[in-house]
Design a protein around this nucleic acid. Sequence first.
DNA 1: CGTAGTGTTGAATTGAATCAAGTGTCGTGG
DNA 2: CCACGACACTTGATTCAATTCAACACTACG
Lengths: 268, 268
Amino acid sequence: MSEVSIKTISGANGASVNSSAILASSVTVLNPRPCPHNPTVSCSSCRLSDLCLPIALNKSEIVQLDEIIERNRPLKKGEHLYRQRDEFRSVFAVRSGSFKSYVLGADGQSRVTGFFMPGEIIGMDGIGSRVHGVSTMALEHASICEIPFSQLEKLSHQLPNLQSRFFAIMSNEIVKDQQIHTLLSSYTAEQRLASFLLSLSARYARCQLSPERFLLHMTRSDIGEYLGLTLETVSRVFSALQKKEIILVKSREIEICDMHRLKAILGE
Amino acid sequence: MSEVSIKTISGANGASVNSSAILASSVTVLNPRPCPHNPTVSCSSCRLSDLCLPIALNKSEIVQLDEIIERNRPLKKGEHLYRQRDEFRSVFAVRSGSFKSYVLGADGQSRVTGFFMPGEIIGMDGIGSRVHGVSTMALEHASICEIPFSQLEKLSHQLPNLQSRFFAIMSNEIVKDQQIHTLLSSYTAEQRLASFLLSLSARYARCQLSPERFLLHMTRSDIGEYLGLTLETVSRVFSALQKKEIILVKSREIEICDMHRLKAILGE
DNA sequence: CGTAGTGTTGAATTGAATCAAGTGTCGTGG
DNA sequence: CCACGACACTTGATTCAATTCAACACTACG
């Protein structure tokens, strides 16, 4: 139990700040103009166009990409984008919200294989086998751009820049997976959590959100399944990092108080 | 210590069978005609053409692919294909022999990120960043086909089948990495080793080699670094599996005696 | 023949899992 | 609006699988 009682991690107002309040203010920073779930936003006007597929494409190329993208209705928290063993037809770009991918083991317990934030691409594991190897679920109200893969292939064939870009995206996914491999095969519980928080922080920063203060949309159990730890260990390490005054934790709200020391955890 | 003394795992001849003897007989099965290290073999005549890049390409497409491939001199055991932080220029297809990829951590200790066998593609992690994130070393005398990536991209743009094929290869790499993620985050030491041996077995089978009897070209330490275990644990688990009569181990030689029970280890 | 690298095995230790009890939070329906 | 139930989370006590430390055996090679 921490002696220093933390009522709220939002310094400004003394009253209790619940999750949705922080989320709302985040969205404001992220997107001062249109609603991020707005399905009519085109790639050209999308604020994520410098993270997502369109990087390195010129205006006219983006317009062509736009034409094959299907902007479906938003997903509610807990809804599935697709399920394990579904036929693969599309890859998806996260427009708003976040997702987790997971597999169900033989014994019925699930293992989380990844989390996805705005601008990131989901579903590339199905390209080779034509079948989704994992299930993917919205962790909050979220919207996506669906990109039918046969059309993406056709268009990539016409636009060398798009082909290059997609090769690069898949390569980056491979690099990310290799980093997780290293993490899981040699890091302690504390190092895993530090690495996880730093990864989230960097990805929030890419979305123009605060890298020091953010919400975890996933449960402790999700984090544990992703990092190869139990939910109890995740909870304990969060508490320990808070006691060391490296982070502040208030349920799903995280504030990184000492980024330097958080990074130092990985350097030993 | 196992009571049943195993002098050799090659049933036929009672004399001691050393590693090179088994390897030699394997190569015979694999490649009854030309030497597998022969740098003049074209894709069209390569016995791996149904595992490697050329799958799904027609004759004339394979000829075009052939033209951009550089068949370098073979590598000796311990030689590097490339090193961490080298500029990325090419991907490589293993023609013979085997490789390991690894990263050096801050503390100087290495972690193995993958093993590669004939027909498999190495180096895709560099495509996005243009820099190799890992080092890759030959585990035995080995030869490779170097595929300069800029030319592969250009050719993929002309040959839709090649583009598709390369997307599929990268996707399969992502799937493989996700499976490792699951293995590392939830399997016991015994399950990890069982999974590792089954993976090797399947890959040897793909190369027309025996799935029941093969050589480990990597050390116990390499295996441990790959599976997130210490070399002592790898050694202990091998001994335990041998005592249960599921496998026979004689230094680097492995024989899977009871494939069914080996698979059953994963099902609990 | 000696040495370096590789592998095996045993004993002690430990980090995280498991088991267990309890609190906090959210959404629903009465 | 409140009470209820379902989840989610925290913390403590105990256990256990794998690591660490240590000693020794095997093999290959100059």
